[in-house]
């Protein structure tokens, strides 16, 4: 089973039309990967679908980096009883 980081990278690559190999945990969605505001909304929606979770919009959209998203999603999965180990 793919790790949370791999799955986050896969979704990010799909939304932003990037090569997953070129996405790194320290990358900022907006500054390094070029995400626009509408794509931020898409990212949140697709992370929710990928992991089967519901995220608070304000909290989710305050996450700025790929690594931050991995940590945030891992925490939400734990809270909502979604197994990602």
């Amino acid at each position: 089973m793919a790790t949370v980081e791999e799955r986050v990278k896969m979704v990010t690559a799909k939304v932003l039309d990037l090569d997953p190999e070129r996405i790194h945990p320290e990358d900022s969605f907006t500054e390094d990967l070029g995400a626009e505001s509408v794509q931020s909304i898409e990212l949140v929606a697709m992370f929710e679908e990928e992991f089967g979770i519901e995220m608070d919009e304000d909290a989710a959209l305050s996450v700025t980096t790929v690594g931050g998203a991995v940590d945030f999603i891992t925490a939400v999965c734990k809270e909502q009883g979604v197994d990602v180990d």
């Binding site: 505001s37 949140v44 929606a45 608070d56 919009e57």
Partner: peptide, 9 residues
């Protein structure tokens, strides 16, 4: 599609 967007606030 319908999304939650940037939310209610």
């Amino acid at each position: 599609v319908v999304t939650k967007g940037f939310g209610r606030k």
